[in-house]
Design a protein around this nucleic acid. Sequence first.
DNA 1: ACCTGAACACCGTTCAAGT
DNA 2: ACCTGAACACCGTTCAAGT
Lengths: 196, 196
Amino acid sequence: MAATATTTREALVTAAADLLDEGGLPAVTLREVGRRAGVSHNAPYKHFADKEELLAAVAARELNRQRAAMDALTRSAAAGAGDPGATVQRMIHEYARWALQHPVRFKLTFGRWTTGSPELATAAEATRGALIAAVNAAQDGGSLPAGDPDRIAALLLATAHGAADLALAGHLSPTGKGHAGPDDLIDDLFAHLRRA
Amino acid sequence: MAATATTTREALVTAAADLLDEGGLPAVTLREVGRRAGVSHNAPYKHFADKEELLAAVAARELNRQRAAMDALTRSAAAGAGDPGATVQRMIHEYARWALQHPVRFKLTFGRWTTGSPELATAAEATRGALIAAVNAAQDGGSLPAGDPDRIAALLLATAHGAADLALAGHLSPTGKGHAGPDDLIDDLFAHLRRA
DNA sequence: ACCTGAACACCGTTCAAGT
DNA sequence: ACCTGAACACCGTTCAAGT
């Protein structure tokens, strides 16, 4: 039945994500993925064209979870009162938190794909859409400067993304009193934008 | 003599960088690196502890070239007149240009290293130092807001870094009139900072 | 000190075969 | 439709040996 197939597929994706967290990309071998999912070392080929497609499924799941987190923030903002600018700020902080907590998944998600997975592209589009909607609301509320919301969203995301990636690589002034983590840089940017 | 060793080492690093550009990380095999450098497939082990150390040498060379480019901009700014803020802006654009032009080297440079290479750390520190000095000058000239120059430099670098990485992954609103590339986002940030 | 060739363990992928 | 076991080509690393 289809349920079995879906379950096996999901089990393979979960096994790959776990291995990614535990030992990085080199730890994700089809043999170990299969073993953890309780199937043979090349059963994955019945669900994915190759190893890259399995990894793309992991990345797509990460992006979809990111969007779910953003949607949850949007809903809780709609329920309570709350500054819409603060909602956007929370989304961006959440993005950086995810990157720092799951560095390898983060790197993989924005890695180089030789095959353009439509599953990945759709997930990315939806996630960006959720952020843009929140930016739009914040602009209406006057807590973010006017202008193309698509462009403001991209600026915010780029800063959070870059800050997280630089921090993971240890390139964010690791010593001295000038030390600033991704969260600090994100807050700096929002402060500059409110002043602009 | 030492000259031979240095040359072989350099040839190995160059071969690895070329392979990186041509076919991505999977194309960099010690066998092919050795072949291109005119040595056997495990001669690299006489110059580097393992494959990762060879890749770290490639990354360090990239960072050192980045610093050289920044230094050149600093010198040409000191010679001519020029707005010191524009010099910083050029450095940041140059950083993004490098990332977009050599995506795999860029990814590698800020990738995950299991061994903390001192060569890499030193190169990174020097590059950040060059940028911070330029930011400091721009602040004196009034073209960048006051505050910890270390922190402004980190914000600028994070935005350029993230914008480039998102663009490479195709996550930067690839369609529609809202499209903005890394260069646009960088200019947006500088505009916001001048207004703040 | 630097290099070579053989060897080992491991991995992605393919294939013939089973249910 | 999904899975298995054997097999193939390839790779990082080690080792004994050469200059």
